[in-house]
């Protein structure tokens, strides 16, 4: 029973993170922009959220929780703006721009974390931020649930509604499939793509915070976000760019990912004495197999990765 509780805790933790970030990637890609910068957006969002939670530690619990989640989302948006600017306005190569932002993110996060750690005008040598997850984590009937579970479900439903039930969603999808046709009907393709990337930044930023805050009492930003953003990209592809499929894909990956954390408590697995790295490898290997099997019927947005040029025929 205890194992099951632990399993649910970690599966939910990773599942919600992967789902949030993959939903972010979905909004960007449905509008036609490949968002490989999700990893970097997560780092920046996590950093901003953690710093906010440290700063708001004195204020009430609700202010602290809401404030840090909002800070993470907004920081992610600001960072994603850099991607939108490069790939929409300047028509730069989206993969290269995104990779640059990934590399830049860890450096920025370390500089800021060291600045936050500084005391009496002296910059610290460590980028490890210490914080409290009080208010983010609750124990309900022996199962640890964190606040991001609720946030995640709300955002999932909201994403579905926005994408399929609103005018904005329809226009966004049109820009990812056939921007020329969308443009001919008077839709501003550039604006739609900006919106797609910015929503993606908001969700990615919150996802970053959701990954590091509820599970660890401190985090060294030297490690960035340890590949979660890239895993979320695989989740998005496995989820065929659709909200609820992404949810199930995220849970599927989360089960593999959480095995690393609970293997010691399961008698059968602990008797194998496999090193932790084997379990860490599993979600990546699983995603490779899944990608190889599903590659034939990929539902990728048709215009993704191609910069839209109004003057081009």
């Amino acid at each position: 029973m205890e194992i099951l509780a632990l399993f649910i805790k970690f599966a939910l933790l990773y599942g919600i993170v992967l789902m949030l970030v993959a939903l972010g990637g979905m909004f960007s890609e449905r509008s036609g922009i490949i968002n490989i910068a999700l990893e970097g957006i997560m780092v920046i969002g996590a950093m901003a959220g953690v710093v906010a939670s440290i700063d708001l530690a004195g204020a009430g619990l609700f202010v602290k929780v809401a404030g840090s989640i909002l800070a993470a989302g907004v920081a992610g948006m600001v960072y994603a703006f850099l991607l939108a600017f490069a790939s929409v306005s300047l028509k730069a190569d989206q993969t290269i721009g995104g990779t640059a932002l990934n590399i830049l993110a860890t450096a920025i996060a370390m500089v800021i974390a060291k600045r936050v750690n500084s005391s009496t005008g002296k910059i610290s040598d460590s980028a490890r931020l210490v914080y409290s997850y009080e208010g983010f984590v609750y124990n309900i009937g022996g199962v640890t649930v964190n606040i991001f579970f609720i946030v995640g479900i709300v955002l999932l439903v909201l994403s579905y509604v926005i994408l399929y039930k609103t005018r904005l969603g329809l226009r966004l999808r049109a820009c990812g499939e056939h921007p020329q046709a969308a443009d001919s009907l008077g839709i501003n393709v550039y604006k739609m793509r900006y919106i797609g990337v910015l929503i993606s930044g908001f969700l990615g930023g919150i996802g970053g915070l959701a990954y590091i805050l509820p599970a660890n009492p401190n985090w060294d930003f030297k490690y960035g976000i340890a590949g979660m953003g890239f895993l979320a990209l695989a989740v998005m592809i496995f989820g065929q760019w659709k909200p609820f499929k992404i949810f199930f894909a995220a849970m599927f990956f989360a089960v593999f990912k959480s095995l690393a954390d609970i293997a010691d408590s399961i008698p059968l697995l602990s008797s194998l004495r496999w090193p932790k790295e084997i379990y860490n490898m599993m979600p990546f290997i699983a995603s490779m197999i899944v990608l190889a099997l599903t590659s034939g019927k990929s539902r990728a947005p048709k215009a993704e990765g191609i910069p839209y040029d109004k003057g081009q025929r």
Partner: peptide, 26 residues
């Protein structure tokens, strides 16, 4: 000077350079 400037500022510089390289074509 470690107490004044985090050494990662050098990484920020090279990161910014790659970001700029992305639209070098422009």
């Amino acid at each position: 000077e470690k107490t004044l400037f985090p050494s990662e500022i050098a990484d920020v510089i090279s990161g910014a350079i790659i970001y700029l390289c992305a639209f070098m074509l422009l």
